[in-house]
Design a protein around this nucleic acid. Structure first.
Lengths: 313, 313
DNA sequence: CGTGATTACGTTTATCGTAATTATA
DNA sequence: TATAATTACGATAAACGTAATCACG
């Protein structure tokens, strides 16, 4: 059994059981792959692929097991290279971060600033995306560290770690009558047109749940993907905004006033996600700890080997 | 990077950094290994072994990471072969079981009988040992499935699954005055000489805890590794026995009487242990389910991929 | 000096690519 | 008939073993 052979069978499956395409994507010849697959099947004593004549039509039952294990082996081989690159390259390399708007705009800037100051040799890349996009990027190996509030814990192939809890706030133009409401209630909110996040973003699910629980239908006139857009329309007087408390800054948002809404909507947990089983370099640990000081190297290691559910905020 | 090279470095470490011995144990030449190690180090760009001149004196820091990952890769490669052997050989092969006396003597016989009847082609091996021995065997890969009440959950490299709960009973020669005690109490027990398990066997720890909690010192005159020995001495009138309720059978143990002691000592959980990350064959699943019907293939798979702590009895 | 790693070198085997062949949709 | 896998074959390279060399204790 050779690592090369495992690469071949994994790639054949990835390319929809087309050996020719697998050969092309691996920059080798099609007969070479064909032969190695045969040799591997002979050595293992089982057929990996179902064939009708000469075409590959599927994976056999043992083939599914073999490919699954082969993928793990190749992933570990990648880890091995990463680990060595980590040691030999010292403070250089690339770190790819993916985050939602809320995180990228309001939570990460100081972290990124400190990180690049501390690791000038490392190329820090950052991609903004939706929670599900971030999860997909992580699974595909395009991204090292993902940060979001929603969705990440729904992927069993990802390890997630709690970063911090936050709640929502309601924003209104300065002088708006709702600012007199003491205390703020959901029944008060349903009287006004509302502007908030799109579904599956920044705790929108918790907002829906809260209104459902009291049986009232909020008048959501506009939804956006980020708090900046919401603020813009609140400023125009289109309605009240419900945004993450992280996103409001009294100084910068001078024309607006905010009311805490932590008692109205369930709180949210920002989560950091990693692909299960990946090798983390020293910089990865460093960035994680800069962002969430309680997520020390030790905590992260324990969570990764423990299966990913141990740590609680 | 070749699997062979990984085998070489892992074996060198296993043989105490002696390349010549590694070559011997792998039935190959010493210069061959030497060269491949060099090639691997060149490819990875890091030194794996520390050398003083030509002697290997230790692992470098990246070397430790490399060897650790290499071991995982090789373990997965073994799993791959096991998986294929499982499919191609059909109902044949070897299954090695390890259990403590209590389990081997009282819980496993019907399971073993049914298993060999159902899988006549499989060579079922059974080894009796102490809980820590069983754990070590599992870690070394000498044993497929381990069963014990103590110690197994203290090894993070093992996955453990709860099989069933059981409690202790007190046995006495027929006609012994303690049999009149209604209900049986710890204070009653301390009046008599006691015979029970050695430490670290069959829930002895729970027995100690119970007496400590009431601040009384039990008069343990004799300890044994198994209930059969204990019964023998109870029969001789040396004292009362405290044994697993599983181990008492009114018919076979005709000269003895038993009193339930479930209310005196905390109950124990028999656990089944597997090495983390191992590939389980169909027979492995079958034996597990025969022994513990609630541990279906699905439950075991979920526990293994979840990290080993999910399932509760 | 003896143990043990490296270097040198020749044999063998395996890998890969090109070209020809065969089978399926 | 076109697409795609297998077979055939030759060139290249990698792996391995033997023998000789070198370094440390």
């Amino acid at each position: 059994m050779k690592l090369q052979q495992l690469r071949y069978i994994v790639e054949i499956r990835r390319q929809g059981l087309n050996v020719s395409e697998a050969a092309e994507s691996l920059y080798t010849s099609q007969p070479g792959i064909s032969k190695q697959v045969r040799l591997l099947e002979d050595e293992l004593g089982v057929a990996i692929f179902e064939r009708s004549g000469k075409r590959f039509t599927g994976l056999t039952e043992p083939g599914r097991a073999v490919v699954e294990i082969a993928e793990r082996i190749l992933a570990e081989a990648e880890n091995l290279k990463r680990a060595c690159a980590d040691f030999s390259a010292g403070d250089s390399g690339r770190l790819v971060l993916a985050a939602t708007h809320t995180q990228a705009r309001y939570a990460l800037p100081p972290v990124v600033r400190d990180f690049v100051a501390r690791h000038p040799g490392i190329k820090l890349e950052m991609h903004q995306g939706s929670p599900t996009q971030i999860a997909e990027w992580l699974l595909a190996g395009d991204v090292d560290i993902g940060i979001a509030t929603e969705a990440l814990d729904r992927y069993p192939q990802l390890i997630t770690l709690p970063v911090r809890q936050w709640s929502h706030c309601v924003i209104a133009p300065a002088g708006h009558p709702v600012l007199q409401a003491q205390p703020l209630s959901l029944h008060e909110l349903v009287k006004w047109p509302l502007i908030t996040y799109d579904t599956a973003f920044a705790g929108r699910s918790r907002i829906n749940q809260a209104f459902e629980r009291i049986g009232a239908a909020p008048n959501v006139v506009f939804t956006a993907l980020d708090a900046d857009v919401i603020k813009t329309y609140v400023n125009l007087g289109l309605g009240l905004g419900i945004i993450s408390a992280l996103a409001f800054d009294a100084q910068r948002d001078s024309g607006l006033a905010a009311l805490d809404a932590g008692h109205l909507f369930a709180s949210n947990t920002t989560r950091l996600a990693l692909r299960r089983g990946i090798y983390l370099r020293r910089h990865d640990y460093d960035l994680i700890e800069l962002f969430a000081p309680h997520l020390t190297r030790r905590v992260v290691e324990l969570t990764m080997q423990g299966g990913g559910e141990a740590y609680q905020l």
